[in-house]
């Protein structure tokens, strides 16, 4: 006997994500989901980004890692509230799911925040699949990775609203073809803004910070 089901497998996550989105939008909080492969410089970028926007924009961070609180310890020095989520407790997950964000947000004073950054688990595959109730998604790519990352992980680059090309201060020492990498990004997502930055030297941060501030103020 056949029984019709017709349900999304990720229904539960999607419903939770919508609840998060509603809660964040009622509080007027812009939520940015930051994703990348491991080692692209997410934490360093966030550290610098926070130094540019604080104290104008009241911010908080949720950091996801499989293990350790190293990233949270670094970000705590910026004096913003930081919640570390270790997905090990949730089964060693390779991504942050909506219910994890909902629980983590309970540890923050949401009335005192305009901007919430979620630093997702370093991984270009799984996080792209899970809606967490964010307002926008950013993918970080660094020039020490292959130029063809966007075409290897098309879903990630389709799902994001902007890309940060990090570590550009290293370009003189590498054989990296920057134009090829940006070309690949636009092959997957033709209108995607690409910000070329260095979290080390702060090169290229102004356009990125302008983009971000505009988004936060639109909330």
């Amino acid at each position: 006997m056949e029984i019709k089901v017709v349900r999304k497998v990720l229904d539960v996550n999607d419903t939770m994500a919508e609840q998060n989105r509603k809660m964040f939008s009622e509080k007027g909080i812009f939520v940015l989901n930051v994703m990348s492969s491991p080692g692209s410089g997410k934490t360093a970028i966030l550290e610098k980004t926070l130094s540019f926007i604080m104290p104008d924009i009241k911010s908080a961070v949720i950091v996801g890692d499989i293990c350790t609180s190293n990233d949270a310890d670094i970000l705590a020095k910026t004096n913003v509230p930081v919640v570390q989520v270790n997905t090990g407790e949730f089964g060693g997950d390779c991504h942050l799911a909506a219910h994890v964000i909902g629980n983590a947000a309970n540890n923050l004073d949401l009335d005192d925040i305009d901007f919430l950054i979620v630093e997702n688990v370093g991984n270009l595959v799984c996080p792209a699949e899970f809606d967490i109730g964010e307002s926008a998604r950013v993918v970080v790519l660094s020039v020490t990775e292959g130029e063809d990352k966007p075409v290897k992980y098309p879903l990630m680059f389709r799902e994001c609203n902007a890309a940060l090309l990090n570590k550009v201060d290293l370009l003189p020492y590498l054989d990296y073809d920057k134009e090829m990498a940006i070309g690949y990004i636009h092959q997957i997502n033709p209108d995607m803004p690409v910000f070329e930055i260095s979290a080390k030297t702060e090169e290229g941060f102004d356009p990125w910070i302008d983009w971000l501030k505009k988004k936060v103020r639109q909330m």
Binding site: M1, V5, R7, V9, D191
Partner: peptide, 20 residues
């Protein structure tokens, strides 16, 4: 050559039915 496109299918992850 426009980049303004919408994805009509390809993002599905659905259970359609079960057979008992």
């Amino acid at each position: 050559k426009s980049g303004s496109i919408e994805i009509i299918s390809g993002r599905e992850l659905n259970i359609e039915s079960i057979e008992l």
